[in-house]
Design a protein around this nucleic acid. Structure first.
Length: 197
DNA sequence: ACCCAGGTGGCCC
DNA sequence: GGGCCACATGGG
């Protein structure tokens, strides 16, 4: 069922090639900034960080919170998100010498747990980082995905881990498919008024 | 003038 | 373990 839906979406919308970002680091920052926020607004925040030339693991921690809030203002919840970015940068420095490649060496289960232990990173943000920044097969469940499964009536509940397992057991364990599927679901949501043949 | 967006944590019961 | 609420901006 879920695999069929994936194939249908892929055929209809084509490959999405997510996540839209230049670096793994940018994926992580974007994943935090996009929490309950339109991607369009996140792009403005990312553009501000790039323009200020601080969107790197070594530069970002040097930006005072005040300035950080200013850069990320368009993405909303800027006080909270500045705090969350700072906490992640502390984590990256303390455990991985500010190195994204070193962070990437962690295995999926360990890294997922450590990300979840960070204040401000919940399951969706953690899985977005694991899948799109670290290329690890952790399926992302978002509000749209929950809605779709609920409409189809194929699950008993909407608990995050349960839905993730449902998807992961229904489709091949492939980073490429996981990436595309979630991207296609978001694309479908944007086109909610249209009918898919 | 509403309503929503690629969530999360805190508080209450 | 679930049901609210705050968090903030920009676009329809």
């Amino acid at each position: 069922m879920l695999l069929k839906i994936y194939k249908k979406l892929l055929k209809y919308f084509g490959k999405q090639n997510w996540w839209p970002a230049d670096t793994r680091f940018e994926v992580i920052i974007g994943a935090i900034l996009t929490q309950n926020t339109n991607w369009n607004n996140v792009e403005k925040a990312i553009a501000n960080l790039k323009k200020a030339k601080v969107l790197t693991p070594l530069k970002l921690p040097c930006v005072p919170k005040r300035k950080l809030c200013g850069y990320i203002r368009p993405s909303g919840f800027f006080n909270q998100k500045a705090e969350r970015l700072i906490l992640f940068m502390d984590f990256l420095k303390k455990n991985y010498r500010n190195s994204i490649p070193v962070l990437m060496k962690e295995n999926l289960a360990d890294l997922r747990q450590k990300l979840l232990d960070l204040k401000g990173i919940g399951p969706e943000t953690a899985d977005s980082i694991l899948l799109y920044a670290a290329d690890k097969p952790s399926f992302v469940i978002d509000a749209y995905t929950k809605r779709i499964v609920s409409r189809l009536g194929i699950s008993n509940g909407d608990k995050y881990e349960d839905l993730q397992h449902l998807f992961q057991k229904s489709i091949p364990e492939s980073v490429g498919i996981y990436k595309e599927y979630h991207a296609l679901i978001v694309e479908l949501a944007k086109n909610h008024c249209k009918k898919i043949p």
